[in-house]
Simulated scan of single mutants.
Amino acid sequence: MVKALGQASTADERAAEAAIRAVPDWKNADMRYTPGIPGVASPTHRAVDSQNWFVAKGDAPATCFLKILHADQSDFIDLDRSVTAARQASTLGLTPAPLWHSAPMSAVVFDLLPESWRTARMDDLRKPDILEHAIAAKKTLHGSTPFGETWTVFDRIRFAEKALGDAAIAEVAADGWWMRECVGDIEAAIIASGFDPKPAHADGLASNIMIAPDGAVQLVDFDEARNVDPFYDIGILLNEAFQFDSEMQPALEIFEGQFRQRSLNRCRLYAIADDLFWGVWGTLMDTVSPRGGVEFLKYAQWRLLRCRMALRNPRFEAMLRTL
Rank of each mutant, 00 (worst) to 15 (best):
M1S: 13
K3M: 13
A4H: 09
A4C: 06
Q7T: 04
A11H: 05
A19Y: 02
P24S: 11
D25E: 15
D25A: 15
W26F: 14
N28H: 07
D30G: 01
Y33A: 08
T34W: 00
I37A: 11
A41K: 02
R46A: 04
V48C: 10
D49S: 15
F54A: 12
V55L: 09
A56G: 13
G58T: 02
G58H: 02
G58I: 10
P61T: 12
T63A: 15
C64L: 05
L66Y: 06
L66M: 08
K67M: 07
I68A: 10
A71K: 13
D72A: 04
D72L: 03
Q73I: 00
S74H: 08
L79R: 06
L79M: 06
A85V: 01
A89K: 02
L94H: 07
P96Y: 12
P98R: 11
S102W: 03
A103P: 03
P104L: 01
M105Y: 00
V108A: 08
V108F: 01
V109F: 13
L112K: 14
E115H: 13
T119K: 09
A120M: 09
K127Y: 00
D129I: 00
L131E: 05
H133Y: 00
H133N: 14
I135C: 07
A136G: 09
A136Q: 08
A137T: 02
A137Y: 02
K138V: 13
H142N: 14
H142F: 13
G143H: 04
S144N: 07
P146V: 12
P146K: 08
F147L: 15
E149F: 12
K162V: 09
A163G: 06
L164H: 11
A167W: 06
I169K: 10
V172C: 13
A174S: 12
W177M: 11
R180L: 13
E181R: 14
E181K: 13
C182W: 00
G184I: 04
I186K: 04
E187Q: 14
E187V: 00
A188N: 12
A189E: 11
A192P: 01
S193G: 09
D196K: 11
P197W: 05
P197M: 08
A202H: 08
D203F: 04
S207E: 14
I209N: 07
G215T: 00
G215M: 02
V217P: 04
V217G: 05
V220Y: 07
D221C: 12
D223P: 01
D223C: 08
E224T: 15
R226I: 00
R226A: 14
I236F: 02
I236S: 10
L237E: 03
L238R: 09
D245T: 09
S246M: 01
A251V: 01
F255R: 07
F255A: 14
Q258C: 05
R260V: 00
Q261L: 11
R262H: 06
A271C: 11
D274L: 04
D274V: 05
D274Y: 13
D275L: 07
D275V: 00
F277E: 15
G279W: 03
V280T: 14
W281C: 08
T283I: 04
L284A: 06
M285L: 15
F296H: 13
F296Q: 03
W302M: 12
W302D: 12
L305Q: 14
L305P: 00
L305D: 15
M309I: 15
L311A: 06
P314E: 11
P314I: 09
